[in-house]
Amino acid sequence: MVCGFRRQQLLLFLVWAYALSAVSSESLPPAVVVHGRRGRNSNINGMYIRDFTWQGQIGTCYKRGGSAGEQPIFLYFEGEWRLGPSPEQGSVWAFSRSSASSPLLIDAPWEVWDGQKVAEDRQIKVSDTSVVPPVPRLV
Rank of each mutant, 00 (worst) to 15 (best):
S42V: 04
N43G: 09
N43S: 11
I44M: 13
G46W: 12
G46P: 04
G46C: 12
M47F: 04
M47E: 08
Y48F: 15
Y48I: 06
Y48S: 01
Y48R: 01
Y48K: 08
Y48G: 04
I49C: 13
I49W: 08
I49A: 09
R50E: 13
R50K: 15
R50Y: 12
D51E: 15
D51K: 07
T53V: 10
T53P: 00
W54K: 10
W54H: 14
W54M: 14
Q55R: 08
Q55M: 11
Q55E: 11
G56T: 15
G56L: 14
G56Q: 13
G56A: 11
Q57I: 15
Q57S: 15
Q57V: 13
Q57M: 15
I58A: 01
I58M: 06
G59E: 09
G59I: 06
G59M: 01
G59R: 06
G59C: 11
T60Y: 08
C61K: 00
Y62V: 02
K63C: 14
K63I: 12
R64W: 05
G65P: 05
G65N: 08
G66V: 05
S67K: 07
S67Y: 04
S67M: 07
S67G: 02
S67Q: 11
A68C: 12
G69E: 10
G69F: 07
G69W: 06
E70F: 00
E70L: 07
E70N: 05
Q71E: 14
Q71F: 10
P72S: 02
P72K: 09
I73V: 11
I73K: 02
I73D: 06
F74E: 02
F74L: 04
F74W: 12
F74T: 05
F74C: 03
L75S: 05
L75F: 07
Y76V: 09
Y76K: 05
F77S: 10
F77V: 03
E78N: 04
E78G: 01
G79H: 00
G79E: 07
G79Y: 00
E80D: 10
E80N: 09
E80K: 10
W81P: 02
W81Q: 04
W81F: 00
R82H: 12
R82L: 10
L83P: 00
G84E: 03
G84Y: 00
G84S: 06
P85F: 02
P85S: 15
P85E: 10
S86M: 08
P87N: 15
P87L: 14
E88N: 13
E88H: 14
E88T: 14
Q89R: 14
Q89G: 10
Q89E: 14
Q89Y: 02
S91I: 10
S91M: 13
S91W: 13
V92T: 09
V92C: 08
V92L: 02
V92E: 00
V92K: 02
W93S: 11
A94D: 00
A94L: 08
A94M: 09
F95W: 05
F95H: 05
S96E: 03
R97E: 06
R97P: 02
S98I: 12
S98T: 11
S98P: 04
S98E: 11
S99H: 08
A100E: 05
A100F: 01
S101V: 14
S101L: 15
S102P: 01
S102F: 08
S102E: 09
S102T: 13
P103F: 05
P103V: 00
P103H: 04
L104P: 03
L104T: 07
L104Q: 11
L104S: 02
L104V: 09
